[in-house]
């Protein structure tokens, strides 16, 4: 099974740099869910999340074509940085309010859950926590999503956000507090 940072991944990224479609396909399969989840909580609709996710992978391909994927850089970090920048650009260009919760969003969460076979009370719980997460400021959202949902380590998050590990730990603690206090 593919693991982030593994030899297998390094070889796939190497092949991606050589414009190997099959390598792209494998990396897409491995990272799609995580990148989708990361973007999902930062936008207001499923279609936005889908579009931006696709754009992330297309951008990665473009970087590969331009020879801009660096040898020693973590591929996972690169993916998240690209996704993050795309979301920022999206909001800048559309002047949307990031944290506004709309009925559409409530439907969005329910829609995403529709194909999940889970008890109703769990779905409600997820809806509640999902809404509270979306109310947080971007910096807190990102760190919570990356650590608790996408299971990245402090070191990996520090790499993506280009901050020190101590800084990430402190922000994580504050983010959790803010989430607890959010209504």
């Amino acid at each position: 099974m593919l693991k982030s940072g593994s030899l297998q991944e390094k070889i796939l990224v190497g092949r991606l740099k050589l414009k190997d479609k099959e390598a792209f396909s494998h990396l897409y399969d491995f990272y799609l869910d995580k990148i989708y989840r990361f973007i999902y909580f930062k936008v207001t609709s499923v279609s936005e999340a889908e579009d931006l996710t696709s754009q992330t992978f297309l951008k990665i391909w473009q970087l590969a074509l331009e020879g801009k994927i660096k040898v020693n850089e973590s591929f996972q970090s690169l993916l998240y940085k690209v996704a993050r920048n795309l979301v920022i650009d999206y909001y800048r260009s559309s002047n949307r309010e990031k944290n506004k919760i709309s009925l559409e969003e409530a439907a969005h969460i329910a829609e995403a859950d529709a194909h999940l076979d889970q008890a109703a009370d769990v779905k409600i719980e997820m809806e509640i926590i999902g809404r509270r997460l979306k109310k947080l400021k971007s910096e807190y959202q990102e760190i919570i999503i990356l650590h608790f949902i996408n299971e990245l380590t402090i070191k990996e998050i520090a790499n993506i956000l280009e901050k020190k590990r101590g800084n990430i730990r402190v922000t994580l603690h504050r983010a959790l507090k803010a989430l607890r206090d959010a209504q």
Partner: peptide, 28 residues
């Protein structure tokens, strides 16, 4: 709260979208 956050790991894109999108991307 952490347990609740972890439950959000089940959020995934729709399978139909995943497959269709992959096909489109690979063609592109």
């Amino acid at each position: 709260i952490i347990t609740q956050l972890q439950s959000l790991r089940t959020i995934k894109p729709k399978e139909s979208w995943r497959l269709a999108q992959k096909e489109i991307l690979l063609r592109q």
